[in-house]
Design a protein around this nucleic acid. Sequence first.
DNA 1: TCTTGAATCTCTAGTTACTAGAGCCATTAC
DNA 2: GTAATGGCTCTAGTAACTAGAGATTCAAGA
Lengths: 138, 138
Amino acid sequence: MFTIGQLSRQTGVKVPTIRYYEETGLLPAPDRTAGNQRRYDAAGLERLSFIRHARDLGFSIDAISGLIELQGHPDQSCQAANDIASAQLADVRAKIKKLKALEKELNRIAKGCDGQGVSENCYVLAALSDHALCGDEH
Amino acid sequence: MFTIGQLSRQTGVKVPTIRYYEETGLLPAPDRTAGNQRRYDAAGLERLSFIRHARDLGFSIDAISGLIELQGHPDQSCQAANDIASAQLADVRAKIKKLKALEKELNRIAKGCDGQGVSENCYVLAALSDHALCGDEH
DNA sequence: TCTTGAATCTCTAGTTACTAGAGCCATTAC
DNA sequence: GTAATGGCTCTAGTAACTAGAGATTCAAGA
């Protein structure tokens, strides 16, 4: 049996976050000691590790709830779980695409400034003020 | 002079968001009609366009406040503005790097599932449960 | 057994950047 | 004059936590 602090150290999830997951129903409420403190078993550790890993991969709490739900109904898990993962993948790819466009523009903006130049004509501020200076990325 | 709705249409910023920007001090409070409605001039439009553009580039409200502050003090704008832009660029690059790692893992996970296979052994769920199955990306 | 210090408990409120809705008022066009 | 559209303020909700107050419990050493 683990205390909430031990669980926290083993999973890397902060203590208040663990309590928050319990409150939202993502993590089942564990047994308590006579003094009302939480005590977790191996199943609790495993569940939290799953959540942690999925959060690291950018899955929303909602999506993780869906995945957990699926674990209880193995009859149709695979297709549905795959759908969730694929949606997440598409999302990640879209974000990468957008960020790359931003990187390009920011890089251009930051390069345009020599770090000392004419102060009233700071290129960074001009570039941000005038969308027409963008390289059409967005 | 523009109404808040016209400003919204011209900048693509939603009406409640414009009011929110005013509330937080990002956008100065405009003049009002006798009937208490906001009326904006060209300067208001320009300021909001600046904010919109910077938000699109992922700058936080805080960073934008800093940039606006700089516009009032042209004596040291350039270096400071460049610092903010460079920090933003570094941030974007870090996000891209992380997302690429996630893409790799998600892709591997989604591919591992054939969409029908053995339901009790859904690879997606297994991969999310067991960090050891990851390709060490995170 | 007692004590001390760290860990835990609950509860409230704050964070970021908005978004939604209720109920009322202003403006504009016909 | 009246109807449609748009605007006003205010409160509360969103996601996913994080921080702090004040009280209680636990484990280890004397």
